[in-house]
């Protein structure tokens, strides 16, 4: 159990949120021109980092807005939270 500081609502319990996986995976601009390997990379392959990872979260039982989070997956400590479209903080 940990607390998440929603950029729209403030600090709430983690159980109000839904994790949305790795952040900054850009949807291909020309999907029709993608090879099978590139599709696999986009759809399935994940960094799954042990350590500092960039993620998307959704405040699904609150404002229902998406935002980004920088979190250390080895101890679940949140390093930074920023809105969608904002530049990720440099470590």
């Amino acid at each position: 159990m940990f607390l998440i500081n929603c950029p729209f609502c403030g600090e709430r319990e983690q159980s109000e949120f839904k994790a949305g996986g790795e952040a900054h995976i850009v949807r291909p601009k020309q999907p029709t021109e993608l090879s099978d390997d590139e599709w696999a990379e986009y759809l399935f392959m994940r960094k799954n980092i042990k350590g500092v990872q960039f993620e998307r979260w959704n405040h699904i039982h609150g404002c229902r807005k998406w935002f980004n989070m920088v979190r250390d997956t080895s101890n679940d400590q949140i390093k930074a939270i920023y809105k969608m479209g904002e530049k990720p903080p440099v470590e």
């Binding site: 994790a19 980092i49 042990k50 990872q53």
Partner: peptide, 14 residues
Amino acid sequence: TDDYVSYSQKGTHD
């Protein structure tokens, strides 16, 4: 399972 990536060997109470 919890829905977020973690290597902490700890899950949530919920």
